[in-house]
């Protein structure tokens, strides 16, 4: 029980840490890293639901979900990285001022 608990709290901590970084960090790569840490946190939480000291009672469904989740997260990360490179290529910068573009990028460009 205690094992489940500490790992799941760690998962939540990772999620929150990643969330903070996602909002506060401005470099694109770090934002993608933050997303990855968040995902790891969620996976940790999911796996703890499957955990049982007795191997016969292990729940395979969350494990399968996490496997799916890992592949999805690798795919999205890869796409995000390509897109980040592209952003740097076209705009010359890989840094967002912040996630929320208040008053930004609303220019009247064609």
């Amino acid at each position: 029980m205690i094992t489940t608990l500490i790992y799941s709290v760690t998962g939540i901590a990772l999620f929150c840490m990643g969330f903070t970084a996602l909002i506060l960090c401005s470099h694109l790569l770090r934002k993608i890293l933050a997303i990855n840490f968040m995902a790891s946190g969620v996976f940790l939480l999911l796996i703890t639901t499957a955990y049982s000291p007795d191997p016969a009672l292990l729940d395979p469904v969350p494990q399968a979900m996490v496997l799916t989740g890992i592949v999805v997260s690798v795919s999205t990360t890869a796409l995000a990285l390509v897109l980040a490179c592209r952003v740097q290529e076209t705009t010359g910068s890989a840094v967002f001022k912040r996630l929320l573009p208040f008053r930004k990028n609303k220019g009247q460009k064609d």
């Binding site: 790569l29 796996i47 955990y51 890992i70 592949v71 690798v74 990285l81 390509v82 980040a84 890989a94």
Partner: peptide, 29 residues
Amino acid sequence: LHAPDVALAEAALGAGLTGPLFLAAYRRM
């Protein structure tokens, strides 16, 4: 946590491939 499948996947995909992906992107940037 008794999830060997996930462990293998994490080692291979999460660390083994995501890392190089990041590095490649980082180099390119």
